[in-house]
Amino acid sequence: MNLKRVGNQTVVFANPPVILSSYSVVGPMEAQGPLGKTFDKVWPDNINGEKSWEIAESKLLQEAMQGAIDQAGVPNDQIDFMLAGDLLNQIISSNFAARKLGLPFIGLYGACSTMALGMAVGSMLIDGGFARHVLVGVSSHHDTAERQYRLPTEQGGQRSLSAQWTVTGAGAVILGQSGAGPRIPAVTLGRVLDYGETDAGNMGAAMAPAIADTILNHLQDLQRQPTDYNLIASGDLGSVGANLTREVMQRSGTPLGPEYTDCGLLVYDQKQDVHAGGSGCGCSAVVFAGSIMQRLKAGELKRVLLIGSGALHSPTSSLQGESIPGIGHAVVIEA
């Protein structure tokens, strides 16, 4: 059998799956950021009349997924899988959105890397011949994440300067076998690296080694250089993690040039007082579904490497003093 696996960690597709549509829904703060105009839908506030923040997050995801389905114009009975994930315990935002959508559902947990993980797994399902269309979506919500992972939002005190701000937003895409749209020719799934960072207020530093590891393996597997990409975007490392990634890549003999950036740096303005930048599943999802997809379709970007970054800790493991394992999943997207 003709193996599609190349090198150590990369899968190259025989018939690259197509991204038929993408849809993003965000909260007001994200809409005020530099990418505000690229999002499909903006909520007036973070709760939008729902009875709890958790239900609101689930609604965000549901709206993003429905938006992607409507835009692709694919009937529900031709969507064979729904892949979704979020940050809440037992991924309830995704479970509750799946309850509404009624599609065969695979729940994923890759922390903030889940969008890239979902696109990678979805592409494999399609190229493997297991599905005609796959719906992929993820969400995060500032207030649900704060109270699960950190402190109550009304508690006075200072966030550390390396802390990031969880994006309130959801992004979704429909992947298909054929049609018009950017394609996914290859994906590189990452391994878990832990270089000993214990501060949950510095997740960028916890994830950077895993991101650099995935980029190095991806480039070696496909015999490529960073400059073969118009854009290399990590998911949500923020300023501290992005600087560390550059430094680590430099020391590993593969320096990253101006093509490298981080979705956590793109989504907010420095003036928005978010400290190191954005984070959360929604961060890379809305930046990809909005800005990056539009630039691909406009022909401004030819080849993009999106590396979802995840910090795989829990509030319990942090209280017990465990260091934070990180992971990175890379997806190649070509116009």
């Binding site: 402190l151 508690q155 006075g156 005190g157 200072q158 550390s160 214990t198 501060d199 949950a200 207020g201 510095n202 942090s318 003093g321």
Partner: peptide, 11 residues
């Protein structure tokens, strides 16, 4: 006490 200790030293 907060700034000179580890970040796990909370309010």
């Amino acid at each position: 006490l907060m700034d000179l200790t580890k970040p796990s030293f909370t309010p």
